[in-house]
Nucleic acid binder design. Structure first.
Lengths: 214, 214
DNA sequence: TAGATTGTTAATCGATTAACAATC
DNA sequence: TAGATTGTTAATCGATTAACAATC
């Protein structure tokens, strides 16, 4: 796969950095400075862009606005994407209350749960019963769903989402979900990310201790 | 780097899957079934284990309990890790209210913010002013912090955390944080993860359209 | 024993980087 | 022009996988 997850992640980060540059009043960047802002080499930046046919000016760097236009279109930021959140626990709640996605053209338009206490059809972002997911997705042409239910329910709820014809799932349950090949699944395992930090902090400490002993 | 982020992430996932297997009453697994549960090849599983000197029985697979013991110790699950959350917005709040980390020996013991409205010293998990971070970290021997502040504040707050002698940061701001080499930083960019799903859903759709045209 | 699974080596695959010619 | 930066190729690096001998 020539175009992979990582390059698209970097595009998201380039975009964020370019917006910050623009806010500072800058007009153009070099692969060098953009790479530094994101934490990658300048070669990486140029390679990424050239893969997508994005070109700058030899000696003159890249026009920030041009880059942004290209990245917007690659990342689909030129149109609104409606998203639903399934599972209104702590994380699901945080996501539907977080206002930051709005201005990024990602609109979270509804939540779903099975707990009657969580339902509220009249909130700014309504929360419906999971039974209504199918109809809602169909009527509103939803393609993307965020899955934030307890581990034990994850595969089952995933099946329901797929059944409803959701085409992409951002999954927070630490489970290797099974789904048809035409459904995109992207996993974020928060506990694993935290354990990663813990592991490397310990690893580094042990290395230091060993160094001191010598 | 022979031991990288990815292998440790897989260890976290193996562990979760093994716990599920154990709950089902299973005593041993094969690299095959464990790989399937996590979504990797059996070769990957055996390679990962052999890198850490974890061995099974030829023909007999691996004892789940033995594996768990090894993974617990690699991931540092045999002792409690205290963690603080800096930035009590939607995400920070979700993290300190999420109870699931407790039984995983990851204890979130305090939050920090600068907004007076967010402070509450008497909650189950108290939220203090950022000014108190230094003292708190020192007194409680904190090594790990979760950074969940607005983008614009991220680098500044990161500096404060490093200053307080925090050694590992799980960062949610889409910024390539600058920190000394002995500070471990692990980035989770939720918006980028969502944009990833959006990108690949679109990419797949376009491919299908093209297929149908032919 | 025959069959199945591990552990490991070697091959493959893919992503990153170094380097430099092209050129503004 | 001289100098700096792009765009791209080739080299490197690292991670994954295939394959199979060892062996329970």
């Amino acid at each position: 796969m020539l175009v992979n997850k990582k390059i698209i992640s970097r595009f998201s980060q380039y975009r964020k950095a370019l917006i910050r540059f623009q806010e500072l009043g800058l007009i153009k960047v070099f692969s060098d400075s953009l790479g530094e802002a994101v934490g990658v080499t300048s070669a990486q930046v140029r390679k990424d862009f050239s893969l997508y046919g994005i070109s700058g000016n030899k000696r003159g760097g890249y026009q920030i606005q041009d880059l942004l236009d290209e990245l917007q279109s690659i990342l689909g930021k030129d149109k609104v994407h409606d998203v639903v959140v399934v599972g209104i626990g702590n994380l699901g709640q945080a996501l539907i209350h977080y206002g930051g996605f709005e201005k990024e053209n990602i609109h979270i338009i509804a939540g779903f749960d099975i707990d009657p206490a969580k339902l509220s059809k009249s909130s700014r972002i309504p929360v419906y019963h999971l039974d209504e997911l199918n109809t809602f997705v169909c009527q509103n042409n939803i393609e993307i769903g965020i899955l934030a239910v307890p581990d034990a329910a994850a595969q089952h709820v995933c099946d329901i989402m797929v059944e409803s014809d959701i085409k992409g799932i951002l999954n927070f349950a630490p489970i290797g979900l099974k789904a048809p090949a035409d459904v995109v699944i992207n996993n974020v395992y928060l506990q694993a990310e935290l354990e990663n930090v813990i592991y490397f902090v310990n690893a580094l400490e042990n290395k230091c201790k060993r160094c001191k002993k010598q």
